[in-house]
Simulated assay, not measured.
Amino acid sequence: MTSYAEELILPRHNSLGWLIAVSGKQLAEDLDQRLKNIGLSIGVWPTLYALWEQEGLTQTELAERCMTAHYTTTRTLDTLEKMGLVERHPHPTSRRALQIYLTDQGKDLRHSALQQAIACNSDYLARLSHAEARTLIQLLNKAVGTEI
């Protein structure tokens, strides 16, 4: 007897991993093109998004939220700092940690960047009904353990 997961491996259009990989690639490429219209890229998107949700995070906290390696976060912050979008400030209780804050320019990009992401998501989900799209998001959150 085969498990449900084994039944879903072949053909590839039944494979969760393949479908997620294809979806992620399509969404990332589309969002990257849209972000380029406002001077950003997909590489800085997770960090900016996390800072729009909450400023003052340390580099370690950002790396955890973005699920990136510490050195990747360092390079991304270097890029964002050169672009004039973030600033590093000394942490009030730790001599080694720095807190990351958006500049006014970084804050000003929030609306236009989120509009690009909304348009990207809307285009991608256009084949689904509103209820199906909500269900898909709920199920993906459940599968990755971030139920809301």
Rank of each mutant, 00 (worst) to 15 (best):
V86H: 04
L128G: 05
R134F: 01
L16Q: 05
L10H: 10
L85G: 06
G106E: 09
T72M: 02
H13A: 03
S122G: 04
Y101G: 01
D78M: 08
R110H: 09
L125H: 11
L80P: 05
E7V: 04
A97D: 15
T58V: 10
H91G: 04
T60S: 12
E87K: 07
R95H: 10
R34P: 05
T74Y: 04
L8D: 13
G56M: 08
S129M: 04
A131R: 13
R65F: 00
Q105D: 14
L51Y: 08
V22H: 14
E7Q: 14
L57P: 00
R127D: 13
L114I: 14
L114G: 01
W45S: 12
Q115L: 13
Q105Y: 02
L19A: 15
Y71Q: 10
T73Q: 05
D123E: 15
E132R: 05
L102R: 00
M67F: 06
E29I: 05
S23Q: 14
L40I: 11
V44M: 12
P11C: 07
L57T: 03
L31I: 04
I38D: 03
E29T: 08
L16F: 12
G145L: 07
G17H: 06
Q116R: 11
R88S: 15
S94G: 06
D78A: 12
V144Y: 12
D108T: 03
T93A: 12
L48K: 02
L31N: 04
M1C: 08
L80W: 05
M1I: 11
A117C: 07
T60M: 11
A21C: 09
N14V: 00
V86M: 03
Y101L: 06
L136Q: 12
T58M: 03
L57K: 10
H13I: 08
M67Y: 03
D32L: 05
Q99Y: 00
W18K: 08
A69N: 07
Y49F: 13
L139M: 11
E64S: 01
R127F: 09
R65A: 09
G106R: 01
Y49S: 13
L48R: 07
Q33I: 04
L31Q: 07
S129K: 10
H70V: 03
G106L: 06
K25V: 08
H70P: 01
L109D: 03
L102Y: 06
N14E: 09
N37Y: 00
Q54H: 10
Y71D: 11
A117F: 07
A143W: 11
D104C: 00
D123R: 11
T68Y: 05
T93H: 13
E29S: 09
R134T: 02
K36D: 09
A131V: 02
L16E: 13
L114F: 12
S41T: 15
H70E: 05
E147G: 03
H91S: 05
A5D: 15
